[in-house]
Design a protein around this nucleic acid. Structure first.
Lengths: 340, 340
DNA sequence: AGAGTGTGTGGGAGCGCTCCCAAGAGGTAC
DNA sequence: GTACCTCTTGGGAGCGCTCCCACACACTCT
């Protein structure tokens, strides 16, 4: 039904090879011939068959975006949608397509991995927010599949793009300290994700840098969800922090609710800083002071690194860390130091 | 580098064809041979080359999810993430993969359409929330590509899965009327999307069914974004509605903000109903009374319909309409009828 | 004993493309 | 006139698979 090279060739009065050359922009075709061939292509509405082409070239121009099981339930957090959108745009710009792989169970993981990567349908993979020690990473390394992680990986061989979670958090906590706060709490992210770990580390370092003690009762574990932010804040209140660093904006939204229910005003009674600067951060009451991470840029860089890797394999691991920026809104206030 | 059928065949001491039969579960292979072949496959770690297979079978087992330009900026609305997640899960269950195509400009649209559909990399397409008269629809129809729309299409030939936007809205507005409200406003969704149109139509019908006039000053146009909900509510206030139907939860969140700023309490001063029941609806202050649409089921049904269409083409257009459900929370109150 | 009927199995062809090698055309230099 | 280029072009091979046809072998029935 669909046209083939051969038929277009007949139409243009040349051979299959010549048409192929024209399509692939090979230089050694006479200008006049080239013109004739393009005309035949245009007239016939011919489109090369991508699958046949892939069989020969060993390239599908499809990359996978893999979002491992642990985070699919975070999908209502706009982080992933924003990442996805930016990655798709970056891929399309380079003539690549993005295939989505979310998996909810680790049986799925195996299955999808086998089906896609090993079956050679993907040229490469972007792994978003892998948990530490994700078996996917070792599979990819073993099989030599080009891939880039969004979020740092502890493995030195892994190419990755990440934001400076430690530095960003330090900035945020420094800000609170500069405002006079001395009892600063934190509700953490998932401890099995690097972003969760690094933000906790940044909090610790900021306190230590100012000679302040890190008190366990001021640290409560969360998992990046709004519910965990609300619950975390509730558990934190008895310890009477005057300011709290929430590991994500989504969690801060939960915290705001907990505080409203507890009758505490933000920022008058308690100050809040968080991380991400997703759209909701500027829409809360009060708007959140938060650490902005350039999600879109991360996605674009990850795609860029991946395509480089696909097109010229074997370059040394590239580990990009993007800077963050503190966006000051209205969720923090000066702490009156009553008796210094 | 990678193994081929031929090599596995040599390993098992049979022919290429026999190995192919075993892999494709063809019945006419002796049990003993089958066992030997599976063992050779297992030992060698052989994986069939999906692209080569596709070249022969004309099936890639990849379907596209196309989200047209007009809605990509809504991507922080959890509707699409939820849809995407459910569609991915449904595809994977059937051994299909989902390819994501978002396009921001209509030049992209052409480009991606050509590259994917016409180049035969996709077995079928799910079109999410096409605007009316989207040229994509006519392209797909012309080229005979199997596709299913999420959201109704005016074209009779199009397979689609939609929720009963009209009926759902009627339920919501009926609820307000039953509570005694007589001045009921509406902030609409995008008028170029069927969901936007149908929800407006439902509002009109509910009023008419109760013999109430449809007053233009009580209808304000929005576009499904939170910002438009906020602005819309502000513009509606001078008309003094005692209740408002917001075309989406996201817009209702905006409306709540506008009301808080205007010093109006919900539901004491003004009642609110909306549509979608996304997670945020139960997390607002007060929680929203809203019309629940089963996004996940819509995605699953769309995938199911699409795969049927791919596997046995030519069945008549299927137009599924799912029922909605009114979820009553705390954003509506009885209207005291002062002087009846 | 010969024809008929299955059941398993092997091998050729072909999917639509790219890539390589060879060969024709046209020129230039000796 | 011959040798030797360079520039274009054509055709064969082959990517790794599936599908079809043919054939070998074991039975059964006349």
């Amino acid at each position: 039904m669909a046209l083939t090279l051969e038929e277009v060739a007949r139409l243009a009065g040349v051979s299959r090879s010549t048409v192929s050359r024209v399509i692939n922009d090979h230089p050694s075709v006479r200008a006049e011939t080239r013109r004739r061939v393009w005309e035949a292509i245009r007239e016939s509405g011919y489109r090369p068959h991508a699958v046949a082409r892939s069989l020969v070239t060993k390239r599908t121009h499809i990359v996978g975006m893999v979002i491992p099981e642990v985070v699919t339930h975070l999908f209502t957090d706009p982080f992933f949608p924003i990442l996805l959108r930016a990655a798709t745009a970056a891929c399309n710009e380079q003539g690549y397509q993005l295939m989505l792989s979310l998996f909810s169970s680790s049986a799925d993981r195996q299955e999808i991995y086998q089906r896609l990567v090993r079956n050679a349908y993907l040229d490469g993979v972007i792994v978003a927010s892998a948990a530490l020690e994700d078996p996917l990473i070792s599979d990819l390394l073993r099989d030599g599949v080009p891939f880039v992680c969004v979020g740092r990986s502890p493995d030195e061989r892994v190419h990755s793009v990440d934001v400076d979670n430690i530095g960003g958090t330090q900035m945020a906590v420094d800000h609170l300290i500069r405002l006079g706060h001395r009892r600063i709490g934190m509700v953490t992210g998932r401890p099995d994700m690097t972003a969760g770990q690094d933000r906790l580390e940044g909090y610790r370092r900021a306190l230590s840098a100012h000679g302040m003690p890190v008190e366990p009762e001021l640290i409560v574990e969360g998992d990046f969800t709004e519910a965990s932010g609300m619950a975390g804040m509730q558990r934190l209140l008895p310890a009477e922090p005057s300011a709290v660093f929430m590991a994500s904006d989504t969690m801060a939204v939960g915290a705001l609710k907990a505080l409203r229910r507890a009758g505490r005003r933000v920022p008058q009674d308690i100050s809040l800083v968080s991380f991400d600067d997703i759209p909701v951060a500027s829409a809360t009451e009060p708007p959140l002071t938060t650490v902005r991470q350039p999600i879109g840029r991360m996605a674009a860089l990850a795609v860029e690194a991946l395509l480089d890797l696909i097109e010229q394999p074997g370059s040394g691991p590239r580990r990009i860390v993007l800077p963050t920026q503190l966006v000051i809104r209205e969720s923090c206030a000066k702490k009156e130091v009553v008796n210094p």
